[in-house]
């Protein structure tokens, strides 16, 4: 695990709710190699989403370090983190999060527009991506003119257009029926087959079982890691070593 893509060490995330401090993540140790397919599971409030936000650099830990591709990203400025998000991380959301006034093609081009890529190159890549995802004749449709499966395909196309190293999917099939959900998962797994690291947060046991590695979270801590059956125990041992702020 020397060339780990993601390396978390001693991560703490504490939310202040009124006077009480809630430990959303406590003393998390995690290492994910490039090209892995990981499912993060656990009950509501177990810290899955917080973990995903942290991995996506949308949130900062209160303590601990996060190395992405060998680089410590916790100490980066907000601008530098935005750059990392733009170039290395793709998000897929449960509720798609497409911009309603933009067409499918424009939604897919959005990350490239934000990154300042030249229009000619943009068009070329969008056309290619639309073809790859079977959306050629939906290019000029707005999100409200698309089916749920098509919307999620547009969202996945948008997440991959910048060729990220890792895709973070938060309940990607949560708003879809079984058949389209299956189709979307196959799409994501195909991406993983091409070497993109895939991390899926889900409630769904069946969905989680498809992943090559399962992480089970409970109460902000890693309960079980299928890659190292003792992993959960390791984490608990490390828990004692962690200097808890509270």
């Amino acid at each position: 695990m020397a060339a780990a893509l993601i390396e978390l060490a001693g991560i703490e995330r504490i939310f202040q709710l009124g006077d009480s401090a809630v430990h959303a993540l406590r003393c998390l140790q995690l290492s994910i190699a490039a090209g892995e397919y990981v499912a993060v599971m656990g009950p509501s409030g177990s810290g899955k989403s917080t973990l995903l936000n942290l991995l996506g650099l949308l949130d900062r830990p209160n303590a601990g370090t996060y190395h992405l591709e060998g680089r410590d990203v916790t100490t980066l400025s907000a601008e530098e983190q935005a750059r990392v998000r733009s170039e290395r991380i793709g998000f897929v959301f449960q509720s798609f999060h497409l911009v309603p006034r933009l067409t499918a093609a424009e939604n897919i081009a959005l990350p490239m527009i934000l990154a300042g890529i030249a229009p000619a190159q943009r068009t070329q890549r969008v056309v290619q991506t639309l073809r790859d995802y079977g959306l050629e004749n939906r290019a000029d449709h707005r999100p409200d003119q698309l089916s749920g499966g098509q919307r999620q395909r547009v969202a996945i196309a948008r997440a991959t257009i910048m060729q990220p190293a890792v895709i973070l999917a938060d309940e990607p099939t949560g708003n879809l029926d079984r058949a389209t959900g299956e189709e979307v998962m196959r799409l994501l797994e195909a991406l993983n087959g091409h070497g993109v690291t895939l991390i899926v947060v889900t409630h769904d046991q069946a969905l989680g079982a498809r992943a090559r590695r399962q992480l089970l979270m409970e109460d902000g801590a890693l309960e079980h890691d299928s890659a190292s059956p003792a992993g959960g125990k390791d984490a608990n041992d490390a828990n004692d070593a962690c200097a808890l702020p509270t």
């Binding site: 996506g56 949308l58 907000a78 601008e79 935005a82 750059r83 998000r85 733009s86 170039e87 998000f91 999060h97 911009v99 959005l110 990350p111 934000l114 990154a115 948008r158 910048m162």
Partner: peptide, 15 residues
């Protein structure tokens, strides 16, 4: 929600 999305897609505060 749109602003949050733009940030997730790599938009900086300045953008």
């Amino acid at each position: 929600a749109e602003i949050g999305l733009l940030k997730a897609l790599g938009a900086t505060g300045a953008t």
